[in-house]
Design a protein around this nucleic acid. Sequence first.
RNA 1: GCGCCCGUAGCUCAACCGGAUAGAGCACCAGACUUCGAAUCUGGGGGUUAGGGGUUCAAAUCCCUUCGGGCGCGCCA
Length: 465
Amino acid sequence: MVGDALANLLGKAGWDVTKEYYINDAGAQVQALAMAAWWRYLQALLATPEGLAAASGATRGFAGSARGREEFEASFGQALQYGGDYLVPVGQALAAEHGAGLLAADGGLPDAATLAQVRQRTVAAMMVEIRADLAALGVRHDVFISEAALVAAGVADRAIADLAAKGLVYEGVLEPPKGKTPDDWETRPQTLFASTRFGDDVDRPLRKSDGSNTYFANDIGNHADKLARGFAELVQVWGADHGGYVKRMQAAVAALSDGHPVPLDVVLTQIVKVVKGGEPVRMSKRAGTYVTLADLIEEVGRDAVRFTMLTRKADAQMEFDLDKVVEQSRENPVFYVQYAHARCRSVLRSGESMADAPADLAAAPLESLTDAAELALIRRLAAWPRTVEAAALAREPHRIAFFLHDLAGDFHVLWNRGREDTTLRFIRGDEPEATRARLALVAATATVIRSGLQVMGVTPVEEMR
RNA sequence: GCGCCCGUAGCUCAACCGGAUAGAGCACCAGACUUCGAAUCUGGGGGUUAGGGGUUCAAAUCCCUUCGGGCGCGCCA
């Protein structure tokens, strides 16, 4: 959400923005995920007579068991890292699509090619879920980048070769971290990137002991790819748990883009702590307290979720109290702003339906707008371009939310002044020129609110009902 | 042990990256609907900006320190 709003904000401020999503579909973690999916595949397959008939070797032993996680690990001598139910449908799909075709000939574990097939299917299924969540949030990306595809295309290796050509890659030994030395620490030479030359605290490994790339190495490829596509500035939005990762990536980008430096800004967002009635909510399906983004959006609505999330600095620790958000959904500031917009539109509709509806509001003379409340609103509107620019430069979309709240407040005040003093109403039959000026002011207010809500990805409603 | 982020009203958060009396919302109290829609408005109580020290004409903001919270610290992603 922060990235989406920030991209919108930069676009509003005049940048030509491309929103990209990096899919971490390579590495040991994903390999482990694929293995778990294969386990689910066996469960689905062996539930059929054909599947049972095709089983041999270790698979046969597994077929005769309760087919749980422990039985799988015992039969194949393979530890599973993922036990969640969410891979069950993936396993069923694999069984339906391939039948017994994904079984190993010797009845053991699948070979590399088969596992790669499973991995691809699994990642695709996960991405369907992620895209659904993104869509529910109203987040759209222009580009999806696959880590595995970049690696396969040799992008990461070329980027590292580029760094090596600059003399920034060497074989070396890292000191163990002070204080808490891991039990299994053993000193060994590694392929390192000299990130300390660009302000990092220590040099960082590029290869694992088995020779494959670290996550960092592949991510260097990811950034090299962005540089190659000619972006003048890079902005990343990461969770706060990646804070220690910022310096090394900035070092890598600085090294890759020397000669034509491209800045890399990293916006860190704190993990949202979900709270219900003062107690932290555990993400546990078993305890029945599992809370997904989809649940949240369904309960309070997309606009309220987005506005609440975006009405705070990204790097502040925050609590999201479910009870309060649901209970206060009526009092949520988002409705305050949307109500102001709806009132603007209501007035403008009335203006248009007048017998002698004033035309060409943009050219209306504004001298008649002299009331303190009118001037306050005008001043606020005049600050809009500056606010957008400052918020964009600071990478702080939350400033837009606060601006909109203040702007809506100014408008509501003016509206209520008109209830006490009828000469301050927007539409006055006896004063066509004053009406024209005020409708111009209302139109400008509506335009700015609409523009700001667009940045936040919140709907500017025509009426509240 | 080291590094990064943070600590502001009872609660959730602001404060235009050194400026004037630190502001909103929620909650609480008291008022305003024969209105272009009261999902709004008006007024009120509530702060030693975690504590201490320093720099400055000026500090929530910068520096030091103590306390408290979050995150991170090779072959995870």
